[in-house]
């Protein structure tokens, strides 16, 4: 998988699962839920985010309930990657299992809204194309990236099983 290149949406600390997937819409279809993602933090986000755009945030991203819509909404909005100082465990696992790469990124404060980033999750390289600075981060192993690229755990299992049958 090549690098993910996108524009930055910048968020703060403790972006919780209620902000990502407001409880009010839990009963709504996932696609509708996604249009309300983070509306109480940045009402323009869900409307204007472009496929491949990159979210950069502070610590404990995704904290709160285990609701999988918090991660699924980012998938449906085609977010390219989330870079945060730290993540809540369940959100982090859900996100990767839904095909949204998440990278621990302690230098998040260097990144500004609108910066253009290039993220290579497999080699663990983050480049700020706007400022010219680059950073090394903990990579996501190639085989896990394969699952992420497939769109998450279920599509990946499907593909793996089909390959197995064909072989």
């Amino acid at each position: 998988m090549s690098s993910i290149i996108g524009n930055v949406w910048r968020f703060g600390d403790e972006i919780n699962s209620d902000l990502l997937a407001p409880g009010l819409y839990l009963k709504a279809a996932n696609e509708i839920m996604a249009t309300h993602c983070l509306e109480s933090v940045d009402p323009t986000f869900a409307k204007s985010v472009q496929p491949g755009d990159i979210m950069v945030a502070g610590h404990n991203f995704g904290v709160g309930s285990a609701r999988e819509q918090a991660a699924l909404s980012l998938r449906l909005l085609k977010v390219g990657a989330v870079l945060a100082d730290s993540f809540a465990r369940i959100f982090y696992r859900n996100a990767l299992n839904f095909g949204v790469p998440c990278l621990f990124f302690p230098h998040y404060k260097d990144i500004l809204a609108g910066d253009r980033l290039s993220v290579d999750a497999v080699s663990g390289k983050v480049e700020n194309l706007t400022s010219g600075k680059s950073y090394a981060v903990d990579p996501i192993p190639a085989h896990l990236m394969e699952m992420i690229t497939d769109g998450g755990l279920m599509p990946h299992l499907k593909r793996r099983l089909e390959k197995g049958k064909a072989a």
Partner: peptide, 15 residues
């Protein structure tokens, strides 16, 4: 969670 346990039950693996 349930989705991950599905993967475990099929593959016997988890990351």
């Amino acid at each position: 969670g349930g989705i991950e346990m599905t993967g475990v039950c099929i593959t016997g693996e988890i990351w």
